[in-house]
Design a protein around this nucleic acid. Structure first.
Length: 485
RNA sequence: GGCGCUAUCGUCUAGGGGUUAGGACGUGAGAUUCUCAAUCUUAAAACACGGGUUCGAUUCCCGUUAGCGCUACCA
């Protein structure tokens, strides 16, 4: 679908507007990513706005968590963060404008009364909508009561008939009968705006051209459209993004395990891998083929920016697939040269309080060797310790499987042979081991597997002789003998 | 319940009035042998259902079903 709207000619201005009532979760991250991609693609501006008008549930700590998540994903913003809690005057003024235009009124019903009526309506099988009783109060009387100090909320006066519609960039035309829209609250009786008012006031004030957000906001949109009209403001382009579901096809939530973006960092995921994975959840670049004619899935950040378009966003919800994420992650680990992996791995070492004792060259060499077998960044700080330091533990399961009977004794003997080798290469180390095995009338595999465990602490490793070279002659000799000592 | 949205392999998706409906992840089988969580080869696997429109629908339209979302003085 072409983004055929006049506002496209203006510089694009979009926003990510999280509510700091929790950490940055994957759904929010994807919304942020799409906004970022769209802003960068169009050369527009991304604004970060913190929707903290729910004082009860918002906290500064959560704001920090959200920023950390965005930085981890490499999503930078151009303006903000703006806090709605600091913009209360704007919302009051906006509400006043709507009142002056005759599209809003004071409501004196208390929260308790409303709840009671709602319960009654539901019980009677009636739709639990506000019955608009305060709309009938004469303006003068309402003003008098407010002046007298009676507390009142401000409600929007939704037109009695007709319908309200908008053209969604992903869903097309969406229409709601006005009869289905209740007279929603704009300003609470304590003067704090509701979401409905603050989004519109800010989106207009910040001159946003496109609103890219979760599809859970579709049914809120007509309420916002009505306000734009009441204020005489031009409508932005709405683009609602389908939701991300858990494996059980319900909306992704804490129940599904890792849900905050930062927990993926803790799982050892490469941020670019996560971003690549996320970008393909609910969006597709279309038919982009690889050299071998297959659909491409791995895209760099720049490619994503180049390819992104609102038209590629799909209409149906997508299930978050951990297996696929894991695949992206291993692809990225393999594709990254050691220099690019280093900072990420060093971060893991720090977390694990592990200090490598080998030279940078040796470390890089080991990383290259290990990459194909790494599932995540944590492997470099846990399973692969033996390559970076002499402080490592031997996996008991691997020892039980391969260090059987007299294997340790044989390894010690083998150690002596290696000590005598003058040219320590993959070919020579292999020849020595195989010759030794033959002498002893053993299958080489028995010694190879045993040596692997003693050398790496693991039952799984790259080719043994490549490992030996990465470790160096001295270490190989020492470790082979150490098990028996 | 009401309103809205959606519907291609288990999952992410490509495609689109006539195709052997393509790819990826995952899964199965085989190969390799020095371990596997590496690598290679290979297989199974989808147009939700019912009506139209049409020479012809997976594709367009309508309905059904299912799923999801919204239904607060939360965002």
């Amino acid at each position: 679908m072409p983004d055929s709207t006049p506002s496209l000619e203006k510089p694009v201005r979009v926003r990510f507007a999280p509510s700091p009532t929790g950490y940055l979760h994957v759904g929010g991250a994807r919304t942020a990513l799409f906004n970022w991609l769209f802003a960068r693609h169009t050369g527009g501006t991304l604004i970060l706005r913190i929707e903290d008008t729910d004082f009860e549930r918002s906290s500064e700590e959560m704001v920090e968590g959200i920023l950390v998540g965005m930085r981890w994903l490499g999503l930078n913003w151009d303006e903000g963060p703006f806090y709605q809690s600091k913009r209360l005057d704007l919302y009051k003024a906006t509400a006043q404008k709507i009142i002056d235009a005759g599209h809003a009124y004071a409501c004196f019903c208390t929260k308790e009364e409303l709840e009671q009526r709602r319960a009654q309506a539901t019980a009677a099988g009636r739709p639990p909508m506000y019955d608009r009783r305060c709309r009938k109060i004469a303006k003068e009387e309402a003003e008098r009561r407010v002046a007298a100090g009676e507390s009142a909320a401000i409600r929007f006066a939704v037109p009695e008939g007709g319908s309200t519609s908008f053209d969604d960039a992903v869903f097309g035309k969406v229409e709601f009968a006005n009869a289905e829209i209740e007279d929603f609250v704009l300003l609470r009786s304590d003067g704090i705006p509701t979401y409905h008012l603050s989004v519109v006031a800010d989106d207009i004030d910040m001159r946003l051209t496109h609103i890219i957000r979760g599809a859970d906001h579709i049914s809120n949109t007509p309420k916002q459209v009505l306000q734009y009209r009441a204020l005489g403001a031009k409508l932005p382009v709405f683009a609602h993004v389908p939701l991300i579901l858990g494996p059980d096809k319900t909306r992704l939530s804490k129940r599904h395990g890792a849900t905050s973006v930062i927990s993926y960092k803790q799982l050892g995921i490469v941020p670019e891998a996560f971003r690549n994975f996320l970008s393909l959840l609910g969006w597709t670049p279309g038919n982009v083929k690889d050299a071998d004619g297959k659909d491409r899935e791995i895209f760099s950040s720049d490619e994503l920016v180049k390819l992104f378009s609102l038209g590629g966003i799909s209409k149906s919800n997508a299930v978050f697939d951990n297996d696929k994420l894991a695949w992206f992650n291993t692809e990225y680990i393999r594709a990254y040269p050691a220099e690019l992996l280093m900072p990420l791995i060093e971060e893991e070492w720090k977390q694990a309080e592990f200090t490598p004792t080998r030279s940078e060259t040796e470390i890089h060499q080991a990383i290259e060797l290990l990459k194909p077998r790494a599932r995540n960044l944590k492997d470099f700080a846990i399973a692969f310790r033996a390559y970076f330091s002499d402080e490592f533990e031997i996996d008991p399961a691997a020892a039980a499987k391969f260090l059987t009977s007299d294997v340790p004794v044989l390894l010690k003997e083998l150690s002596a042979r290696y000590a005598a080798v003058t040219e320590f290469t993959e070919a020579s180390t292999e020849a020595v081991l195989r010759g030794f095995a033959e002498e002893k009338g053993l299958k080489a595999g028995v010694l190879i597997n045993g040596a692997r465990v003693v050398l790496t602490g693991q039952g799984v490793a790259p080719s043994l002789f490549a490992v030996m070279i990465a470790l160096g002659q001295q270490r190989v000799v020492a470790r082979l003998a150490a098990k028996l000592a």
